[in-house]
Design a protein around this nucleic acid. Structure first.
Length: 161
DNA sequence: GCCAACGTTGGC
DNA sequence: GCCAACGTTGGC
């Protein structure tokens, strides 16, 4: 299976590339969108490259990249009423319920690889012809996890250094 | 803070 | 199954 490429969004006020650099490896929890869930559950494989994008900040930018180090497993935060990502529909009141055995939401582990010397801003991406087709810059795309083409990955790494 | 886009929910 | 209402995302 060929290596694939992804982009994940994070608000740096919540979790930034610096936070990832500090902890090195983390689980990517809290994805609550079915399309993004399917990418995580079915398609993200160990060794895949993941661009790390800061959203809702100034400037919005791809700030580095990381790597998938553990493939999909249940996102435990869906079951925890005290967690902001709690999902009452996924919640099994009983620990042995079928819902816990058949979870709705999944996560992967990602590991820090590199912080860009030059963050690749949203404006940079929009003004680069080679990146016109990126899902990130297509109309109304709110996915927090999305696939990236190999040539787009290479171009962004080239821009960020 | 505004608002467009779009996913989800719930009444029918 | 339709669709209006509502909530969230995220750029500006």
């Amino acid at each position: 299976m060929a290596k694939k490429y992804w982009l994940v969004k994070s608000e740096p006020a919540v979790f930034s590339i610096d936070d990832l650099e500090k902890c090195t490896t983390t689980y990517w929890d809290g994805v609550r969108n079915y399309q993004a869930r399917n990418f995580i559950r079915d398609e993200m494989k160990k060794g895949d490259g993941v661009l790390f994008y800061h959203s809702s900040t100034e400037p919005n930018a791809v700030v580095g990249y990381c790597e998938v180090v553990k493939e999909s497993y249940p996102d435990h935060t869906q079951f925890d009423p005290d967690n902001p990502h709690f999902d009452p529909k996924a919640d099994p009141t009983r620990l042995d319920s079928a819902k816990r055995a058949n979870p709705t939401w999944f996560m992967v582990d990602i590991k820090f690889v590199k912080k860009f010397k030059y963050p690749v801003t949203l404006a940079d991406i929009k003004s680069n012809q080679k990146l016109k087709k990126m899902r990130l810059v297509q109309r109304g795309n709110r996915l927090s996890v999305m696939p990236v083409e190999k040539n787009e990955w290479e171009e962004i790494l080239r821009m960020g250094k």
